[in-house]
Simulated assay, not measured.
Amino acid sequence: MSGTPPDDDGTEPPGSDDPLGLAREIADSYRGTGAPLRPRRRRTDGSTPRRRKSREDPTTVADALGALVRQQGWDDRLSAQRVFTDWSSIVGPEVARHSTVDGYEDAVLHVTTDSTAWATQLRLLAPRLVARLNEELGDGAVLRIDVRGPQAPSWKRGPRSVKGRGPRDTYG
């Protein structure tokens, strides 16, 4: 091995065969133990040692945020917000092409369609959509769907409006 004589117990001193031995000795002296650490032996059976989970152990950001969400009780709210991202997979590509989710609050989903015909269809499909959304997002996540058709422009202001005359003056 190396030219260093073995210790009293028959093992070589740290740092003789271990290239990190000097670094371990320095780290131990700063810790205040004064005694150098013996090199760790690797397990031959392939198992990993059980470690105690402590506050100093590193954790992922996802785990930390997940614990915060569970601790604050935000699980239901966040799962209900999936309706914005998963709308097309929940209702299907055809319905999603003609409708968009505008808002979600107090278990009421606000949806806008691109035509009045699609607004009528979604109003008729609303009970089935509520059941499907509750199946995907959690029971009671959506109680009602508020469907709005396209919004017509207001003719009360503009270059072609006359006070007291209304919309008949807009097309000249």
Rank of each mutant, 00 (worst) to 15 (best):
R31K: 00
T170D: 05
S79H: 11
P6Q: 08
T33V: 14
S115K: 07
G149I: 00
A35S: 12
T59C: 01
P5N: 05
Y30N: 07
A67W: 02
E56L: 13
R144D: 14
A96H: 06
W74T: 00
A35I: 11
R70A: 15
P5G: 00
E56N: 07
G32C: 06
G103R: 10
R148F: 08
L122G: 03
D169N: 14
G3C: 07
V101M: 00
R52G: 06
I90C: 01
K163H: 12
L124I: 11
Q72F: 13
A64F: 07
P49D: 07
L124M: 15
P13I: 03
G34T: 04
S88K: 11
S88F: 05
T85S: 09
Q121V: 00
S29P: 00
T59H: 06
R31Y: 00
A96G: 02
L37N: 12
A64Q: 13
R165D: 11
E25G: 07
A131T: 14
D45E: 06
D28S: 15
G21E: 08
G140Q: 11
G32E: 08
L129E: 02
G158H: 06
V147R: 02
V111C: 06
E136M: 07
R70D: 15
D76K: 12
R97Q: 13
L122Y: 01
Q151E: 14
E12F: 14
P19W: 02
G32T: 09
P159Q: 09
P14I: 15
D7P: 00
S154Q: 09
T116V: 06
T113M: 11
H98I: 14
F84Y: 15
S29R: 15
V83S: 03
I26Q: 06
A107P: 00
P159N: 04
E56R: 12
V162D: 05
T59F: 04
S47Q: 14
P159S: 12
L143F: 01
T33S: 13
G32N: 13
R50E: 13
V130C: 06
T85W: 03
D86E: 12
T112Y: 04
V147M: 04
E56K: 09
W74L: 15
G3P: 01
L37A: 15
A80K: 05
P127Q: 00
Y104R: 10
D28H: 13
S2I: 03
P6A: 11
Q71R: 14
K53Y: 05
I145S: 10
P93V: 07
P153D: 08
P39A: 10
P13C: 05
P39R: 12
V147F: 04
G34F: 04
